[in-house]
Design a protein around this nucleic acid. Structure first.
Lengths: 212, 212
DNA sequence: CGAGTCCTTGAAATGGATCAAACGCTGTGG
DNA sequence: CCACAGCGTTTGATCCATTTCAAGGACTCG
């Protein structure tokens, strides 16, 4: 997907060094501080990027899904700033940065794609700050559910949530508080469980509930 | 500074459309949603980038100083995502994006500079999440002071702080809480006021205080 | 010097963290 | 098919941190 702008047959010559890889749930894709120079493109599944404080507390700074590029800092020759961990079984392709640079020299259209991935990462980070790290916890949880909803099925959307501990690490709160708010939402009928960590969400009720 | 990699005389032809501008304290550099296509490069002074929630509450998502480029989203043809406001009298130069693109076509070295600005913005956003939006408020304030310290003067550094309301908007807390913690730090002798909003900070004491 | 802005402090009420214990679900092996 | 281990969730109770409202005081800048 990173190569959306490029000619398909032309690519095959260049893409030989690219590996398709599979990561199981919980597998570490890369670790903070690693100096290896790969950018990863997600083909399926979801990953979290986490930072650890000195006290060992973990904070999730980004969530990545299909089409996202992760480990972009390698492009500017920086060690990875976070640890990337698969939340589900994932298909990713691992692209050496020097290959990317070679492609970029011959076909500058690539850098357009790279800029847009970069912009997406920044936009997500800003969302994290303004929506997941601001205001009372209940509002944060509600905004998080919004974020996780598979768009386009309204008014009753299907949401695949994460385990409480991960949601807490996204919101900068404790797992107990997340659990309590989830209970609340289930009791009022905003969320209805249909499978493990999967719910049907009444979007209208969710929105109106935020403004109480 | 954006043109650090480029030849000086070569530039003069291209840079004619660039305006040098001055913004007074509180002046709006651009507003969220504006579609104008300029990138601004800071020559002196500091600016805040703020996002407003529906309730009108403001959250500062970034702070920019000398050498920073702001309004980068214009490069990928997006409207500005935040409102940029001068915190002090500022000198900035305003560069039309189409000029940048022209320069970039002829001298691809420019895009290296742009990527690195983009990376800096993302790094700051991540710092905001992990350091200014995580953990108890006292720790956040301490990390914020660290961030604002003019590096290189140790062990007693000079810090130019912001008004309490702005610091609160950076930390996602209330101005009263910020004020209380500041009082605490002054009482213990970690901070010593030498001018309006300017303090001498005993860095060692500050650090050891964080771990209580 | 005065107007306005910003800071400080108090007291009450709330919200959230933490510790601890019980519960429920899921997948495994007998 | 059932029982059990392990993980994750739920819930309660207590304590602490933070918000909020309100008022007084200090500082800054014209």
């Amino acid at each position: 997907m990173l190569f959306a702008d490029l000619d398909a047959t032309y690519l095959d010559n260049l893409l030989a060094p690219i590996d398709n890889m599979v990561f199981e749930t919980g597998a570490v894709i890369y670790s903070e501080g690693d100096g290896h120079s790969y950018i990863y493109s997600v083909r399926s599944g979801r990953a979290k990027q986490v930072g650890y404080s000195k006290s060992g507390q973990e904070r999730i700074v980004r969530l990545n899904g299909v089409g996202d590029a992760i480990g972009l800092e390698a492009w500017v020759d920086k060690p990875y700033q976070h640890t990337a961990i698969a939340l589900q079984k994932m298909d990713v392709c691992r692209i050496p940065v020097n290959v990317l640079k070679r492609i970029n020299n011959e076909v500058p259209l690539l850098s357009r794609q790279l800029f847009s991935r970069w912009e997406a990462a920044l936009e997500q980070a800003d969302f994290w700050i303004t929506s997941l790290s601001t205001g009372p916890t209940r509002k944060r949880v509600i905004r998080l559910i919004h974020f996780l909803v598979d768009r386009d099925n309204v008014p009753n959307a299907i949401v695949r949530l994460l385990k409480a501990e991960d949601m807490a690490a996204m919101l900068g709160t404790s797992k107990e508080t997340v659990s309590r708010i989830m209970s609340e939402l289930k009791n009022i009928g905003v969320l209805r469980r249909i499978a493990p960590r999967t719910y049907i969400c009444d979007m209208a009720a969710l929105d109106s509930y935020e403004y109480q």
